[in-house]
């Protein structure tokens, strides 16, 4: 329990640090007034416009010191209020945007991680079972190719081959479609994220499996006549999963980053495309909200990974 509290305390510190840095960075870099008022923000010679500028500053607390604004924002944020978008066409609550977009990105990432896991484990088992044989060498080349290939290039290739040439998958995502249609539409983007991740997982798992397969307990199992496949899956796999799980957790952050591009390529209106647009428009509340969601997700996944370590090996808890 003490271990869990330590991890949670570290997570809270991390979230505070990220939020402070992001809040400071966003507020120092741009002028949000322009997004709230449009051209009026630059019309400082006109008394009517100046009145609007002053009113907007007061309304959005832009006339207050940065630390005060940060504390206000933080206080609202922990109660689930992310504020309103900086927009000249209204003040839609950021939570509306998050409610709409977060499930799409999470579906995409969960599907991608599921696919990456489903691909990498059998792939690593096969490669480890045939270590230094042609199958393993082909596997190595393939995994390096997938790791080296940027995901935007992979996305375009997959889209062309599986979407345009073979017509197996839709080229675009439509939010109004039924759930299973949308799931079908997410397969190509998820595969684009999953394949490089699967290659990384496979490389690590294969290496650990090869090492584990040289352990005495494996030799013992083999000498008892346990079939090779059973030895791999039942005896070697579990103790070889440490690196896999570590990278699985750490990679969550990379996948969230990768989804920015993939969502754009496949026209999935999720958090990735929202944050890109928000950065361009200097819509700080949206940027901050998405950064916090991404960071929180990353932290939670890694806490879960840490907890999983202790399940796999109770010595970690000490």
């Amino acid at each position: 329990m003490n271990y869990l509290f330590q991890r949670l305390a570290m997570a809270v510190m991390l979230l505070l640090a990220v939020s402070a840095l992001t809040f400071g960075g966003m507020n120092l870099l741009g002028d949000p007034l322009f997004n709230i008022l449009g051209p009026v923000a630059a019309d400082t010679s006109n008394p009517t416009s100046v009145a609007k500028i002053d009113a907007a500053k007061e309304k959005y607390y832009l006339d207050r010191p940065l630390p005060e604004r940060y504390v206000r924002w933080l206080g609202d944020m922990v109660t689930g209020d992310f504020g309103v978008q900086f927009s000249s066409t209204g003040e839609p609550p950021v939570t509306n945007l998050l409610k709409e977009r977060t499930p799409r990105t999470f579906q995409l990432l969960v599907l991608a991680q599921f696919m990456a896991t489903a691909i990498s484990i059998p792939w690593a088992l096969i490669a480890a079972a045939r270590v230094r044989r042609p199958t393993d060498r082909i596997s190595t080349v393939t995994s390096f190719l997938l790791i080296a290939l940027p995901n935007f290039a992979l996305g375009i290739i997959l889209k062309y081959l599986l979407g345009i040439k073979l017509g197996w998958f839709p080229l675009t995502y439509t939010a109004s479609d039924p759930f299973f249609s949308r799931l079908h539409q997410l397969i190509l983007p998820a595969l684009t994220i999953a394949l490089p991740a699967a290659a990384v997982y496979q490389r690590l798992l294969r290496t650990d499996l090869v090492t584990t397969l040289q352990e005495d307990f494996i030799l013992m199992a083999r000498s008892k006549g346990v079939p090779r496949r059973r030895v791999l899956v039942r005896h070697a796999l579990r103790p070889s999963l440490f690196s896999f799980i570590t990278v699985f957790g750490i990679n969550t952050g990379a996948l969230i980053g990768g989804s920015l591009i993939v969502e754009t390529i496949f026209r999935v209106p999720g958090l990735g495309s929202a944050i890109v647009e928000a950065i361009l428009r200097e819509d700080f509340p949206v940027v901050l909200a998405i950064v916090m969601i991404a960071t929180t997700t990353f932290v939670l996944v890694n806490i879960a990974v840490d907890l999983l370590y202790s399940v796999l090996d109770p010595r970690v808890r000490r």
Binding site: R267, P269, A274, E277
Partner: peptide, 8 residues
Amino acid sequence: SGRSEDSV
């Protein structure tokens, strides 16, 4: 009927 910005 409905609107999902940037999608439909």
